[in-house]
Design a protein around this nucleic acid. Structure first.
Lengths: 230, 230
DNA sequence: CAGTATCCTATCCGATACTG
DNA sequence: CAGTATCGGATAGGATACTG
């Protein structure tokens, strides 16, 4: 948004004035997804500069959408929590995502892949329920990428917490998944499925884990919506 | 929105890229409310410059949200109609308006009154059902305004169509309503009611029409939502 | 790690004037 | 009435470097 506000008394305009500035909706998506710390937010919105992130967080605070709380143990570190006004933005974000999934062509955004963002999102959404009741380690490999971004480990603890590592976590790997980043992203977005993309994925390790992957892989919250444009 | 897109594969970001540019959400509100012609849109979004409106309409067309159709009788005149993708933006706009009504402080926007915009919105929303089954003419007067913006006539035909005039329509006036613009705007937004603001409104003419005004006056679609901020 | 200040440029947008 | 071209200024926001 540029220049001054809309100076209209319509609630849509009033909301747009707060919400329709660059990165704001994406940042709110991240907050609503549960991130609370500055660098957590940065991981979810990696192309946003830290100075702009800092500024937006202050603006959201002024708008009554987030509050900053010092973290109990660590002094000088803040946690950003949504207020009730912020939590009530969930339907707004969902409406955006729902519409975007249906009506925005995804080809262009599939040109802008980002393994760390994808893995970060997968970590967040991973569904441990179908997994065996012990620690499970899944290694994902994207052979076409540079070494520093090639290998990722998802560590699902018995209690259901999930960690993402970029170096071997020191536990035995239960399943190796090798594919290309575009395929994995398309699966995450719900544009294809594990079985439809079977010829582009190879598994090694526990075969049962590979077969059930579609079930425990955490997909985008909007993956269920069918595209309405090519 | 500035600069290039977000280059993210998240549907929220994809939608925001299309929708979160200046004036776009407000323009869409107007399209969804039913305006189809260039100057109709201008009346609904009066502070938007015609060049930007033109540009946005082209962008919305590129995004598959509107299509332009030549008007049957008049050559060289276009009508802007929402596509299915555009019609599916209704819940998005509604989510914005709903949230804006609840959580954005309205004092600042009540500093930016605009009688022609207000009357235009009232014309659109007016509910003819409770009115007698004949032509009804209501004259609204804002004494504090300059003569050119002081008097407005709402002409409700027997078939329910409503016209807005800025000069006497030539029919007898059934009801004169005199108030100040701020009061009328607050009523339209649902921040107050006709009866709560009774001391700021005077009526002349058919008393029954005055008494039933809250019922036939067209309020903002979001007027029913209670503010959650002061 | 968490966050801010500075600087500079791209670009968005507003005003105005203009055409079919 | 319907819509577009031009132009210049404001400012948003990206890059970078820096501090507690």
């Amino acid at each position: 948004m540029s220049q001054t506000g809309y100076r209209q008394f319509c609630p849509v305009a009033m909301a747009a004035e707060v919400l329709c500035t660059r990165w704001t909706m994406v940042l709110l998506r991240e907050l609503i997804a549960g991130s609370t710390r500055f660098n957590e937010l940065r991981r979810g919105v990696p192309r946003m500069s830290p100075s702009l992130l800092s500024r937006r967080l202050r603006e959201l605070e002024e708008a009554g959408i987030v509050t900053r709380h010092p973290v109990p143990e660590q002094p000088e570190v803040l946690e950003y929590r949504l207020t009730e006004a912020g939590r009530e933005l969930r339907p707004v974000i969902e409406a955006f995502g729902f519409w975007g999934q249906r009506w925005v062509e995804s080809r262009p955004s599939l040109e802008n892949l980002d393994p760390s963002l994808l893995m970060w999102d997968m970590r967040r959404g991973l569904n441990p329920a179908p997994l065996p009741d012990r620690r499970i380690v899944v290694q994902v490999c994207y052979p076409e990428l540079a070494t520093s971004k090639r290998d990722w480990w998802l560590v699902v603890e018995a209690d259901g917490t999930v960690d993402l590592c970029q170096s071997p976590p020191g536990f035995d790997v239960d399943l190796y998944v090798t594919t290309d980043l575009r395929t994995m992203t398309a699966i995450w977005m719900g544009l294809t499925t594990v079985s439809d993309a079977a010829d582009k994925i190879t598994y090694d390790g526990d075969p049962a884990l590979g077969r059930s992957m579609q079930g425990w892989l955490g997909l985008s919250p909007f993956a269920g919506e069918r595209k309405r444009v090519p």
